[in-house]
Amino acid sequence: MKPYAEVIGDPIAQSKSPKIHGFWLAKLGIAADYRACHVRPGDLADYLAARRADPLWRGCNVTMPYKQAVMPLLDRIDPPADAIGAVNTILARGDGALAGTNTDAAGFLEPLARHLAQTHYFRMARIIGTGGAARAIITALAGEGFTLVVAGRDPAKARALLDELGGRGAHHAIDLAHFADPTDFPFDDREGCLDLIVNASSLGMQGQPPLAFDWSHAPPRSIAYDIVTAPLDTPFLQGARAKGHRTIDGLAMLIGQAAVAFERFFGQPAPREHDAELRELLTQ
Rank of each mutant, 00 (worst) to 15 (best):
K19E: 15
A117E: 15
I77Y: 03
A81Y: 05
A200E: 07
A259H: 01
P3M: 13
I227G: 01
D43G: 10
V39C: 06
A151W: 02
L148N: 03
A160M: 03
A173D: 12
D75S: 08
N199Q: 10
E110I: 00
S201N: 03
G256H: 02
T183C: 11
I12G: 05
C193P: 03
V70G: 08
K157Q: 15
G107H: 08
A240S: 09
Q118A: 14
T247W: 04
V228R: 01
L176G: 02
R58Y: 03
G207V: 13
A81P: 07
P219C: 10
L194V: 08
L251G: 07
G132Q: 06
R93H: 14
P269N: 05
F185W: 15
D195T: 03
D233M: 07
K67D: 03
K27F: 01
L109P: 01
A69D: 12
R135A: 11
D189L: 13
V70Q: 03
G96W: 11
K19T: 13
A230V: 12
Q284L: 15
T130V: 15
H245P: 07
A53G: 10
R159V: 01
T283M: 13
A173T: 13
A133S: 15
I127H: 05
A158T: 12
G239V: 10
V260G: 00
P18Q: 08
V39K: 03
A133D: 11
A140R: 02
T101P: 04
A230D: 14
K19P: 00
T103F: 04
G132E: 09
T183L: 11
L232N: 05
L74N: 06
P219Y: 09
Q14C: 05
T147M: 03
P80Y: 04
T139D: 13
I77C: 04
P3W: 10
S17V: 05
A134Q: 09
A160H: 12
F262Q: 02
P220G: 06
M205W: 05
S202Q: 00
H178P: 00
Y34D: 02
A218V: 09
L73V: 13
G192R: 06
G152A: 14
H21I: 06
A180E: 13
F146K: 06
I227K: 01
M64P: 00
M71K: 02
T63W: 00
Q257G: 07
E277D: 15
F23R: 00
I255W: 07
D181E: 14
R123V: 04
D33T: 07
W24S: 05
R51Y: 03
G207D: 13
V228P: 07
H21Y: 07
L237F: 03
P18D: 09
R272W: 01
A117R: 13
M71S: 02
A224H: 04
K243Y: 10
E164M: 08
E280L: 12
H21W: 01
G9R: 02
A117M: 07
D233W: 06
H171P: 05
Q238I: 09
I197L: 15
L109I: 09
A133E: 08
Q257R: 10
V39W: 01
A180S: 15
P80C: 06
A92C: 12
K19R: 14
D184M: 01
M1I: 12
V228E: 00
P271E: 12
G239N: 10
Q206N: 14
P231W: 07
A276E: 14
P271G: 11
D214C: 13
V198E: 06
C37Q: 15
G192P: 00
G244E: 14
R58M: 11
I128E: 02
I248T: 04
A113R: 14
A200F: 09
G29K: 11
D104M: 00
